[in-house]
Design a protein around this nucleic acid. Sequence first.
DNA 1: GTCTCGGATTAGGCATGCCTAATATTAGCA
DNA 2: TGCTAATATTAGGCATGCCTAATCCGAGAC
Lengths: 250, 250
Amino acid sequence: MPNISRPRLRQAGLHLRVVNAHPGPASTSESIDDYLKAILELGGAEDSQVTTNVLAERLGIRTPSVTGMLKKLALRRPALVLYEKHRGVRLTAAGKRRAWELVRHHRLLELFLHDVLKYSWDEVHDEAERLEHFISERFEDRVAAILGDPELDPHGHPIPQKHQAVVQRAEAPLLQLPARRAAIISSVSDRNAADLRELERLGLVPGVRLTVEPKRSLASVMIRTAKNQAPIRLSSELASRILVIADPAA
Amino acid sequence: MPNISRPRLRQAGLHLRVVNAHPGPASTSESIDDYLKAILELGGAEDSQVTTNVLAERLGIRTPSVTGMLKKLALRRPALVLYEKHRGVRLTAAGKRRAWELVRHHRLLELFLHDVLKYSWDEVHDEAERLEHFISERFEDRVAAILGDPELDPHGHPIPQKHQAVVQRAEAPLLQLPARRAAIISSVSDRNAADLRELERLGLVPGVRLTVEPKRSLASVMIRTAKNQAPIRLSSELASRILVIADPAA
DNA sequence: GTCTCGGATTAGGCATGCCTAATATTAGCA
DNA sequence: TGCTAATATTAGGCATGCCTAATCCGAGAC
């Protein structure tokens, strides 16, 4: 038998950087984390299957890499995904657990970076995306405590409670809002910093009340906010970043 | 030409998780970081060469792995280490820069975890060790600002200023302190949580004044603190965690 | 029912960073 | 100086996770 008595952090065949800091059943690498989160965000937590192509596009990698990884994720015990050749992939219960945990980490980190470390709105995403893999359960708990167990991140996305998925809200894309129907911005996509800066400049942040003007084109929409009665022209791209809910006061 | 137009995060031959968040000259992996920091802490920032064996021991890996990595680090442009076969390794200027940056990250994080996130003394090391690789320069700056550009981490170790090595202090091991010579605990090793808890229980934290009793053995020393005149028996192992400086008031 | 074409898979390769086994070098001691 | 023990290196292998090129499958058009 070779020497295994001495403390050794990296061992034969186990030298990947393992990311789970808590004692969960399976440990995951950064890559695996990214797959799980992407599958979740593409709808693979429910009935719908996520396709190899779409996953590859989202992750910025080639499809054969995705196929290979999905096979591995499906073979792990406990399995993280349900994978059927040529048909797509879904998360298992274990896969959903880790994916939701990552979402919780991400959104807690975003709020923490914004509120405590004074990051601006558009700076939080990238840092949270990097750190979400590495914080321990203790870090997660302490941050949540400092922030007072918050419910929303700086972009209006709900922060899942521990070991829970988020409750689905009645959100709809701003671009699908009927004209003159009063609505409130519920969240904005955090994935593009430049767009975020522009939205902030225009005052279009979660909580703001608005209506859409009847005159709209494929390229843009006109909107009115409660405070600023001068209408704002919004490119469709920018508008597509915004989700709204019906104004309960209307 | 293959398709390279689409955003791609991981590219052929470049899919390692790169760790430098700032625009420095060279990017480093977690493994490389660990080597650089270990070499620094083993004295390889100065004239002395660090040996393959000692490095392997410190990193918890086998010597052939170390040899292989050192060859790579020496061949990078800019080179991170000076490596002479069979003679040992030292850090280059670039290697020192990254290593000191990691030390700054580590100690800032320890203080931050302790002061802001309310981690206990013995909990900060592991979390800081993991996160030090991944925080951005912005994170580093914001944390330093919140903490008021601190000079010492919770264990009494000096926090390097940005882009600087630390100023060496006149520290000496407690075990080398002459009997009855008044001294002050300047720092304690953070590498063993159990020992840290014990030291805290005994009140042996940085800043505490103490003297060593003349009666000492190989296995333990007796010490007296200013406040508690009952002498404390300290195992040599525990005592070896403590560094002291002469008491300026004596 | 067959063809086609886009989506998906297999096959084979490579960088990173670890391992063991075998070999080479250095340094200490006679 | 010559031998031996400790230290270090080379050689070869493997898991992870990406790539390209080639092949395969399956859903819709006919």
